[in-house]
Structures are given as C-alpha cells and as structure tokens.
C-alpha cells in the first residue's frame, strides 16, 4: 500500500470517528468537536495530495490555510450557539434545541 493510500485511509478513519460522534453523542459541544474532526480529516487529504499528488501547484496548502481559518470561525459561532442554548434551556443536550423561537 502506498503512502498516499495510507494517508487517505487515516483521514477516512478520522472522518468516520467524527461522523460517529456527530450522529451518536448527545452533547452539542461534542457534536461540534466531531465536525471539527471531520474538517481536519479533509485537510489531511489536501496535504496528502499536495505531498504525493502529481500536480506541481501549491493550491492544496493554501486551501488548508483557508480551511483552518474558517474552521476557527465555525468553532466560535458554534460554541456561542451552545452558550445561547444553555442560557435558554439550562442544558446542552441537542434534544433541547427543538424550537425556532427563542
């Protein structure tokens, strides 16, 4: 098995761990962390293809930089939502977030 295949396999495993967390866990914060993990797995793919791919351009690395920046913004907004949810419902269980009006 080639290094590129191994990298892709690793990122698949990480992606699936994140996906399982998003689907199974009840805590909003853990779900957010699962989403972050999935994003990270995707980033790893970009780096793997930049390192082993045939192309000679560096767009993969640049894309990962943007992805990291956007993931940081996502974490900030997501956790602000969690805090707002906790303020209204006194819990961060996802089941509690079942109303559109605050």
């Amino acid at each position: 098995m080639s290094p590129l295949h191994l990298c892709l396999l690793l990122s698949t495993v990480l992606f699936c761990i994140g996906l399982a967390a998003v689907l199974v866990r009840t805590s909003a914060i853990l779900v957010l962390l699962g989403v972050e993990l999935m994003l990270n797995a995707a980033n790893l793919n970009f780096i793997a293809f930049w390192r082993y791919g045939p192309g000679g351009d560096d767009t993969g690395v640049i894309f990962v930089l943007f992805s990291i920046a956007v993931a940081a913004a996502e974490a900030a907004v997501g956790l602000a939502l969690v805090i707002a949810l906790h303020r209204h419902r006194r819990t961060i269980a996802l089941k509690a977030a079942n109303q559109l009006r605050g």
Binding site: N43, A48, R51, V61, V64, I68, A69, A72, A75, V82
Partner: peptide, 26 residues
C-alpha cells in the same frame, strides 16, 4: 509531509485558539 507553515498554523489556531474556546464553553 513537509508543510511546516500549515503545521504551525494548525497548532496555533487549534491548540491555542479553538481548544480554549471549547474549554471555556464547557
């Protein structure tokens, strides 16, 4: 993989930033 800049950015943003926000939210 040789992407030093991305590696350090990942450490600064995730270890220094996102983790703090997560812990604070917890």
């Amino acid at each position: 993989a040789g992407a030093d800049f991305v590696g350090f950015s990942q450490a600064i943003v995730y270890v220094g930033g996102v983790s703090m926000v997560v812990l604070f939210a917890v």
